[in-house]
Amino acid sequence: MTSRRFEVFEYRQVLVHMRQGDSDRDIARVGLMGRRKLKTVRNEASTRGWLDPALPLPDDATIIGVFGRTPHLPITCVSTLEPFREQIRDWIAAGVQGTTIHAALQRNHGYAGGYDAVKRMRRHLLAECGVKATTILDFAPGDAVQVDFGAGPMLTIDGIALKTWIFVMTLCWSRHQYAEIVPDQTVETWLACHRRAFEWFGGVPSRVIIDNAKCGSSGRVATTRLRSAPTPRWPKDMDSGSTPVRPHDPQKKGIVEAGVKYAKKSFVPLREFRDRVDANRQLREWVMQQAGTRTHGTT
């Protein structure tokens, strides 16, 4: 039968009890050590003068030297992401989200580890960063959608770099969204994106909360162009149903603001696109397979 090996702190506790006058039977009853082991400790401690309360207890090294127990060395774990530490640091500095980093490592480097490893490393690298507080906006099902534009990926076509935008419409209650990469923010593009978004959702909400951008303000006037168009799902009176927010007040449409930010940080980075058609194909897959299936904090 293998005898138990005691830790240094256990020997120190036993010595404290002995210096207080506790018997071996009393100490054994507490469960610190068996009476046979306590007899050995008491004999050694008595011989070395450790039981005198007026004297300091021996240090750990002295106890180890007498009873032959070496302290545990701290366990050091090397993260499976250590080879990518600097790359991950750069991605985090660029604002790339953890899920996107994990997906890129799997896609581009064959990383087989779990997302928890990415979260641990990201938490370590962001240990000194704070978290901004937000206010939850409450909506009933079918009540409203929020609409906004965000900067899209740069597309290089025939050697020419083209700037794009991401149109995002988010259902306020469910957080499901429609997203599309477009070449501009004109009124025509704004209206066409609304038409395709309503076709994507298969219906329209009671109201549309839009940004106070020029295309949105002009678009409310230009909706008359679409009222006679063969699109039965388009609202008959979109002018009365659209609600522009005040300038410099993004919190009033914070749901779509978060959706645009999520698309910019989760979808755009670390991807390659042949053209806008390919970019929108990947964007639709991302919306249905990743953005639309995630567990949202408020839902």
Rank of each mutant, 00 (worst) to 15 (best):
E44F: 07
G142H: 10
G65K: 09
P153A: 07
R89A: 09
Q251K: 12
P83M: 06
N43K: 15
Q87T: 05
G34L: 06
N280S: 06
A94I: 00
S228E: 12
Q87F: 01
G297W: 11
P58F: 06
H102F: 08
T134Q: 13
G68V: 06
A258Q: 12
E180D: 04
T170A: 02
A179N: 02
W50E: 07
Q20V: 07
A179G: 10
A104K: 06
A28M: 07
I166Q: 09
A179F: 00
R281I: 04
A117T: 01
R12F: 04
P153T: 09
D249W: 11
V118Q: 10
T243D: 10
F139W: 11
L137V: 05
W91R: 00
A229Q: 15
D249K: 10
T170I: 04
M169N: 06
P250D: 03
W190D: 01
E199R: 15
G254Y: 01
G150S: 08
A197G: 10
K132P: 02
P247Q: 09
Y262C: 06
D24Q: 13
T70P: 03
V96K: 03
T2A: 15
A151D: 08
R207A: 13
D26R: 07
H176E: 12
R195V: 14
I27W: 04
F139E: 01
Q282E: 15
Q97H: 15
T156S: 11
L270N: 12
S266G: 14
K236M: 07
V14K: 03
T170C: 01
R25N: 06
D143S: 08
M121C: 00
S217I: 11
A28P: 05
E199W: 09
A192Y: 08
G49S: 13
K253A: 05
G34D: 13
